[in-house]
Design a binder for these strands. Structure first.
Lengths: 212, 212
DNA sequence: GTCTATAGACCGATAGAC
DNA sequence: GTCTATCGGTCTATAGAC
């Protein structure tokens, strides 16, 4: 059997209380890094500070991750992947594009607002444009393309530039990242989900209540 | 008379060709910093690299700016101020809220896409949350409030949560920042201005062609 | 107004003990 | 699996010459 998270098989036991009691050291590092990267940015977050937040020494990070970039890469991919999977399932199955778009927007907003940290902020870190994050960027581009496809299929007939419309819906959804960062009294997630889904459907020119 | 930009009254003459021939050294520093902060982020941009880009030595920056933060603060405030001025004029004068919102969205998108560098990216730098940038944050918050006011006044009667609607229009407009960063073949500015203004009016529930 | 030189701090990563 | 110790590099900012 693999060892339980809180009973490692080697190494000196850690001193302080841990922030995620039932998590592996690797998960604790990812959680601490997520908080710090979101709050201070990637470049401004030292590996020393990550380690200190977890309660280990700086050098011990390198047992779990090859380098600092690997930590960010793992966070990015874990963040976009569930939404991408959901989006591509929706686009491949749902015969009603407006209903599928509604579902995708609701799901995406729910994930962005429900995450323990506002990890959507990581998408905009300048470092993400560099090579170690190519896989994440490709996955995110696939998500954007799914938004384009669904928006184009759901758009009213008198609307043109459907690629731009899809990008605008994508941007509208991700604007909740900035709202979560900047607004101290953000509306509750369910309310924001309703507002953003309704806004997205008006944006593409589809009625909120589908004709039956 | 004050000295011409290209004939300073003291100091060793600079060696290489300058990037902005008719600008003061101060303006050249701001321009180089804007490009580098946008491309690599604030923390990852060293004062050495800024100086090298301008064609001076690292220490010479400190004749023109007290520290690195001051350079970013000046860039941020110069970026938001024209749009804020325009927005508050519109909100105070225009009797037709949908027309005013249309005008503001068009102006804002035009500024974001027309700037020499994609300086809207600077808004999202994590460092902006710290103290030296408080004045910028206040000005940006006033811009957001103007969007809320105009969107609420322009919104169709059957739409509620008008504050959220205003924030979503604000987010929709600023999503062109990410589009400019991520899309290699971005639509021309005029086309994007038309698409975003039309999308914003649909989002608030106002018809693109005003009744009358 | 730009230069040289440098103080003083912090950084990511590696080696090797336990 | 975590530790100590440390290397080589980079950083911002200041002092003072010209």
């Amino acid at each position: 059997m693999s060892p339980s998270p809180s009973t490692p098989t080697a190494g000196r036991p850690r001193s302080g209380a841990r922030r995620l009691p039932d998590a592996t050291a690797r998960e604790e590092i990812l959680d601490a890094a997520a908080e710090l990267f979101v709050r201070r940015g990637y470049a401004a977050t030292s590996t020393r500070l990550i380690a200190e937040t977890v309660g280990i020494r700086q050098a011990s990070l390198y047992y779990h991750f090859a380098n600092k970039e690997q930590i960010l890469a793992e966070l990015l991919e874990a963040t976009v992947r569930p939404t991408l999977t959901h989006a591509e399932e929706l686009a491949g199955q749902d015969p009603d594009p407006a209903a599928a778009l509604h579902d995708l927007v609701k799901y995406d907003v729910g994930v962005l607002l429900g995450a323990r940290w506002n990890v959507g902020i990581l998408y905009a870190l300048p470092e993400v444009a560099t090579e170690p994050f190519t896989r994440f960027r490709r996955e995110r581009e696939r998500l954007r393309l799914t938004y384009r496809t669904l928006a184009a299929a759901a758009a009213a007939a008198d609307i043109d530039d459907t690629d731009i419309i899809g990008d605008l819906v994508f941007g509208l959804v991700e604007s909740v990242i900035e709202m979560r960062r900047e607004l101290p009294d953000l509306a509750p997630p369910e309310k924001l989900q309703r507002a953003v889904t309704a806004a997205a459907l008006r944006l593409v020119g589809a009625a909120t209540n589908r004709p039956g």
